[in-house]
Design a protein around this nucleic acid. Structure first.
Length: 674
DNA sequence: GCGGATCAC
DNA sequence: TATGGTGATCCGC
């Protein structure tokens, strides 16, 4: 098949490098006409920088990878009857019954594809328009008409006027100013954004109390019930909802209405800003919609996967079907199942709020001007350790694995991890010590970023909440009425009603979260390495007493990268990440930032607007706390906690388990696993 | 379990 | 002069 070979690899690479430099949001948010010009300016401004060189390296690696894939594909095609392969795939997609004879043994999942298409739920994706920028506009109307952006160093948001000049989020400020020298750049004002976010989300929750806030400015709703109850069409409902938001907050929101989350998300982009788009709820319309849709619009397909797919001739979702034979032959690399689902426009339609126990990791990292001195590096490490301690302590987490991350001044990133068989101490000294141990064998280095992350988490707050509590537990003995605790996971077989879940494939997967057994063991495993409530933290020395595995082997190994993927969820659950940009240098700075002389004043009881906790402290400390809360992903979490109390309405135990529900875990062959 | 990578926001 | 931070997930070892 020569059709996919007609792309000169050379110019393709150049092109892709330009696109790479242009930033991730280029393709997603359909841009102006002279994007080529803009890309040229960006490339020129970048040229020669270490960042640029690193992008070039990545691009070259990708080109090599593509060459390998094409070779593999051609190899796989030899002696294969393409028509026969295509026919097999057709059966998989179209007639479930005949799948039984499939030589791919995918029948039991694939048979569900078209047959299980569920059009019964009205899913809405809501997306605030240029959220940060519009909040700024709200607070300062004089900005109207000016070309401005929010952030510093790197932009987090560009106003719509600024976008016309090619200015986008994620773009370094100095490049943005090359595109438009008079650009006004405002500092982030997270407190305001989160405040407004809460207001907006509260409005959304009137339409679906069970909605899922996917980030500060985005969410998914299931309005099926609301529409029935109020006898509204989906469009009327969403129209009304958007009007209400604008009326009550003066902020505009765009929305997509579709039978599942993936489609809804794509649709919300269709009439942005301040518009909505509804997809017809029938298989033909959905498939027609997908047919010419750029594969890049599919959530989870980024620049890399776009290029990989493009290399075998797939640019639109319709092309997936055209090239089904190649994809089938290279299922391992591309994930046929996921792509076919995408082609059909089938994905998850489950909407539920974020819950604490979905969290998998917690971490902190910091970028600075490159340094090589050991002492300075350790100092930075100490600072992130302190931040991480605060974060974990404040939010009630511990874990078993610590991962060190560092980025060389060449922008190459490395990680080194170490696991323990006990819950680690979250004291900064201990986190620091672990990080140091991981870092030491790597030195000397010249780095521009350092970070620590803890995984294999244990929720300490859950203990506090659902257990009778500390000591008492020992006295209560095991009467019949012992606390149910964790059993949340076990009950619940069905949501309300017979609704399908689209991702039956995924749901059918047993043991999706391996935490089950672990948590069960841990029930009685109260001997945290952590200081038990009231106890003392264990010293770093003893922390190191029982490592389970050691990371840090040898260092660099630029070698292999034999993988290629293309799938992944789109909205695999809420990401709490609130925003980029400098997490303010609040507390734990060794040197107090010049934060103007705040009297501080007397200690008093205050309630943090972000995490809702009551605290006894003076104003200075309180402000520092707020900075801290805002600087991390705390916003979403706080919102969720705040809302969960008010939303007991139609789902109290509607959570089968802390599971995601994206279109598919990821391709992957059938079964078992995970 | 570890390390490299991709992706979203 | 100069390109973020948090979190999730996947693949190949």
């Amino acid at each position: 098949m020569a059709d996919s070979l007609n792309v000169p690899p050379q110019s393709q690479a150049t092109d892709s490098l330009l696109r790479r430099l242009a930033g991730p949001s280029t393709t997603k948010a359909g841009l102006a006409t002279d994007q080529t010009d803009i890309n040229r300016v960006i490339a020129e401004a970048s040229k020669g920088s270490k960042f640029y060189e690193n992008e070039k390296r990545k691009d070259k690696d990708l080109t090599k990878k593509i060459e390998r894939i094409l070779k593999q594909r051609d190899e796989a095609r030899k002696g294969v009857d393409i028509a026969h392969v295509e026919h097999s795939v057709d059966q998989l997609v179209r007639s479930p019954r005949s799948c039984i004879e499939s030589r791919y043994n995918l029948s039991h999942q694939l048979a569900k594809m078209e047959a299980q298409r569920d059009l019964s739920q009205i899913i809405v994706h809501v997306d605030m328009d240029a959220f940060y920028a519009n909040v700024e506009l709200l607070d300062n109307p004089r900005l109207k008409g000016t070309i401005f952006a929010v952030g510093h160093g790197v932009l987090t948001t560009a106003s719509y006027e600024a976008r016309k000049f090619g200015i986008r989020s994620g773009m370094p400020e100095y490049i943005a100013k090359k595109l438009y020298p008079d650009l006004v750049v405002l500092p982030c004002n997270f407190g305001r954004y989160s405040e407004m976010s809460k207001k907006v989300m509260d409005i959304f929750r009137r339409y679906d109390p069970n909605m899922c806030a996917a980030s500060v400015d985005e969410g998914y709703l299931n309005i099926t019930h609301y529409c029935e109850e109020h006898v509204l069409t989906a469009e009327e409902c969403v129209q009304q909802m958007r009007q209400t938001v604008e009326m009550e907050t003066r902020l505009t929101v765009s929305a997509g209405i579709a039978p599942n989350k993936m489609l809804a998300k794509i649709c919300s982009d269709r009439n942005k800003p301040n518009g909505q788009f509804k997809l017809d709820f029938n298989p033909q319309a959905v498939k027609a919609f997908m047919q010419d849709l750029s594969i890049r619009k599919v959530p989870g397909i980024g620049r890399v996967n776009e290029r990989l797919l493009e290399s075998i001739g797939i640019r639109t979702c319709g092309d997936i079907y055209t090239h089904r034979a190649a994809l089938s032959l290279m299922d391992k690399q591309f994930g046929l199942h996921y792509l076919l689902q995408t082609y059909l426009g089938i994905a998850s339609n489950h909407v539920e709020p974020y819950h604490r126990d979905e969290r998998k990791s917690i971490g902190a990292e910091r970028t600075f001007s490159a340094i090589s001195e050991k002492e300075k590096i350790f100092k930075k490490l100490e600072e992130v350790a302190a931040e991480l301690e605060d974060d974990m302590e404040n939010r009630g987490w511990t874990g078993k694995t610590v991962t060190l991350k560092y980025k060389l001044d060449t922008y190459k990133v490395y990680t080194r991890a170490k696991s323990f068989d006990r819950w680690i101490s979250t004291k900064k000294e201990d986190l620091f010590a672990i990080g140091k141990e991981l870092l030491l064998p790597e030195l000397p280095l010249r780095i521009r970023l350092i970070g620590l992350r803890v995984t294999k988490l244990k929720d300490l707050r859950e203990d506090a909440d659902s257990k009778p509590g500390g000591i008492k537990r020992f006295f209560e003995s095991t009467s019949a009425s012992s606390s149910p605790r964790k059993k949340r996971k076990v009950d619940v077989h069905q949501d309300e009603g017979p609704r399908l879940s689209q991702d039956g494939y995924e749901e059918a997967m047993p043991g999706f979260h391996d935490e089950d057994e672990e948590e069960l063991e841990d029930e009685d495993d109260i001997d945290y390495l952590e200081h038990p409530p009231g106890g003392k933290p264990i010293s770093s020395a003893s922390t190191f007493a029982t490592p389970v595995a050691s990371g840090s082997k040898m260092s660099s190994k630029p070698t292999s990268m034999s993988r290629l993927t293309a799938k992944r969820d789109f909205s695999t659950g809420p990401s709490r990440s609130t925003s980029p940009e400098k997490p303010s240098p609040s507390k734990h700075c060794t040197k107090p930032p010049s934060r103007a002389a705040e009297p501080g004043g007397e200690v008093q009881s205050q309630i943090c607007p972000i995490c809702s906790r009551t605290m006894e402290m003076d104003n200075t400390a309180f402000n520092a706390h707020i900075d801290f809360c805002l600087s991390k992903g705390a916003i979403m979490e706080a919102q969720v906690e705040a809302s969960s109390s008010s939303n007991s309405r139609r789902s109290t135990s509607v959570r089968p388990s802390p599971r995601k529900h994206g279109p598919s875990k990821k391709l992957l062959r059938r079964g078992r696993g995970r």
